[in-house]
Amino acid sequence: MRDFSEYRGYEVYGLSVVGFVKGFAAFRSIATTFLMRENIGTLDREGTIVIEPHGWYPLDGYLRAFNAIARETGESVVRQLGVGVMQNVHWPKEADSLEGMVRLINVGYHMHHRRDGVPLHDPVKGLTPSLIGSYEGRKVSDSVFVIECANPYPCLFDQGLVQGGLRRLGVKPGSVTVTHEASRPCRAKDGESCTLRLQLGPGAEWGIRSRVSTRPGPGIRF
């Protein structure tokens, strides 16, 4: 089992962990099991996990929890974790459209990670070079965008992350399809990255503005 020791000193923001737990829906006891194995969170008197949304948690342990989930549960669970995280984290304020989400997903990713207590995104200085990788979104045509995901999270998680972003934007189900480009490398097959393709259907627009809030809803205890 990979121990992700290269990420010691890195931390993930509590809101990401909140989304992780919410991604389990009615089966949050499973999330409790995986996270407590890594000493992430605390338990209250009833044995319910407590996550501090504005706290910071060790990234190596968080990634080990993902790895364990990928081994011990179904693909749909890992994908749903991505949906849960994307619907509960902070977004850059300009990420209020489909195009904005694709363009700024990497900024949002770095906003929720830090190294040795220093955030990996600074509003003035920009991104800090690090080992956590990136999401690189680009426009291919008027109806197609791609996002290259080169980071330590599971492939299925990133698919769910994008789908969760579409839900948060209020995109009509079925109007944008998200697929993994089969001709490209895949981290699940020892590749260094995965490429996701976003295809617009009739009537969908990249620039359409949503009423989505860039601030997540409250949540501490589950």
Rank of each mutant, 00 (worst) to 15 (best):
C194V: 08
L104E: 08
S143P: 01
E94H: 13
G23Y: 02
V107I: 15
V85R: 05
I51M: 05
R197M: 09
K22Q: 10
N39Y: 01
G23L: 02
E72K: 13
V171S: 03
G82P: 04
R64F: 11
T48D: 14
R187L: 12
V17A: 01
F20A: 01
P58N: 13
I30M: 00
M36H: 00
E11L: 09
V176N: 04
S141D: 07
F145E: 07
F145I: 10
L200A: 07
V124P: 04
P58Y: 12
T179M: 10
S175L: 07
W206L: 10
P152T: 15
Y10P: 00
P58I: 13
M36R: 05
G133D: 04
M1C: 07
H121V: 07
L35S: 06
I49C: 11
P152K: 12
F66E: 03
D96K: 15
D158M: 09
F24N: 00
G41F: 03
I132A: 00
L156S: 02
V21Q: 03
C194E: 03
V18K: 06
S76Q: 08
I40Y: 05
P123T: 09
P202S: 07
G14L: 08
L200K: 04
E181G: 10
I105S: 11
R103H: 12
P119W: 14
W91D: 02
V146I: 14
K93H: 13
S97E: 10
